[in-house]
């Protein structure tokens, strides 16, 4: 066991809306060790992004988090901290990369300014030193001509280059935990692999822990140590990546895996998208949230909400898991 960087216990996040309470994250618990990468996979609306913002305590004012939810980073409880204390952690201890590099960089500030402000605020660097360090960081993330780019504005860069800048900002203060929230979804396919490789290298070189959020099982496959599958705000299956792929227990995970396009597929084959829609999180069904879309669901699934069970290595929340076929 390495040292535990992040310990999330029973995180619940709900939003007050005109229609009622939307329970976006519903009792998520996991731990993450130094040097390891956790993939969080789910469809859009499954609560992945809200989870990442809940960890960073970056929630809008209509969000409600119950008092028994805990986020412990490096042994300190973020839920008990004041806004000022949290501010000192964001950057040096935990950093985030957002999905869309087109909108996550400020259009009216130069690239350099957006990096140096982190360095001057958190590390107390002087102007010149911060600038030199920013150029160094841009070189490290593989941006060509970093000494020119540092004075340019985001719109002068391509999407892939912008995401490199976002990575440079995130690693500027050498955080212990990096959250990458769909870092490649908005990018061209050709650039996606480059960015993911870069992220992986940065995390390995600096011995950070990373949470890689994605809706694409294919992204997790080669790049994560563990995978947590989320559905309707809950973790429904969690295991080391190899176990998850080879001994899938949760039908939802199986459906996600089936939706990865394979090289061996004939061209123009129709993708196996999962039938139906995610449940309404304002009025969730009483039983298993996946039951209405699940081929294996029976009457029991509609009545009872399954809880995470299994071994500490491989956990799943399902009443009729795969690999436990009832005798015919």
């Amino acid at each position: 066991m390495g040292d535990i960087i992040l310990d999330v216990r029973n995180q619940k996040t709900a939003f007050v809306t005109a229609r009622g309470m939307a329970q976006a994250v519903d009792g998520v618990s996991f731990t993450l060790e130094r040097g390891r990468t956790l993939g969080v996979v789910g469809e859009s609306g499954s609560g992945k992004s809200v989870l990442s913002r809940s960890i960073m305590r970056l929630l809008p004012s209509n969000a409600l988090v119950p008092a028994d939810s805990r986020v412990i980073l490096n042994g300190r409880d973020l839920t008990r901290m004041t806004e000022t204390e949290l501010r000192r952690l964001r950057g040096p201890e935990v950093a985030i990369i957002f999905q869309d590099p087109m909108t996550s960089l400020n259009p009216v500030l130069t690239i350099g300014r957006q990096i140096t402000e982190v360095l001057t605020f958190h590390m107390g660097l002087k102007r010149r030193a911060a600038r030199d360090r920013a150029i160094e960081l841009l070189r490290a993330v593989g941006l060509p001509q970093p000494d020119v780019r540092v004075d340019q504005y985001p719109h002068q860069l391509s999407g892939g280059m912008r995401q490199r800048v976002a990575i440079a900002i995130a690693i500027a203060c050498e955080p212990d935990l990096l959250i990458a929230d769909e870092p490649t979804t908005a990018l061209d396919v050709t650039v996606q692999a480059e960015i993911l490789d870069l992220l992986q290298r940065m995390v390995r070189d600096r011995n950070m822990a990373m949470i890689l959020i994605t809706h694409d099982m294919g992204v997790v496959a080669g790049r994560c140590d563990d995978v947590a599958v989320m559905y309707a705000g809950r973790i429904v299956e969690k295991a080391p990546v190899r176990d998850l792929f080879h001994h899938t227990r949760m039908p939802y995970t199986a459906a996600l895996l089936a939706s990865i396009p394979k090289i061996t597929d004939p061209p123009h084959r129709k993708l196996d998208a999962i039938e139906g829609r995610p449940p309404d999180i304002i009025n969730p069904p009483p039983g298993c949230p996946f039951a209405p879309r699940c081929l294996r669901a029976d009457a029991g699934c509609d009545a009872e909400k399954p809880v995470l069970a299994g071994t500490s290595r491989h956990q799943w929340a399902c009443l009729n898991p795969l690999g436990e076929e009832a005798p015919a």
């Binding site: 709900a14 007050v16 809306t17 005109a18 229609r19 009622g20 309470m21 305590r57 970056l58 929630l59 809008p60 004012s61 969000a63 409600l64 988090v65 119950p66 008092a67 939810s69 839920t79 901290m81 004041t82 806004e83 949290l86």
Partner: peptide
């Protein structure tokens, strides 16, 4: 994300869910 403050100060004011539902809708009305 209109609000730049965190929601930490709200954590303690958790009430039963039905209750908050009703309050939210009533406030809106």
């Amino acid at each position: 994300m209109a609000d730049v403050t965190s929601s930490t100060q709200r954590d303690a004011t958790q009430r039963p869910e039905i209750d908050r539902n009703a309050i939210a809708i009533a406030l809106h009305r």
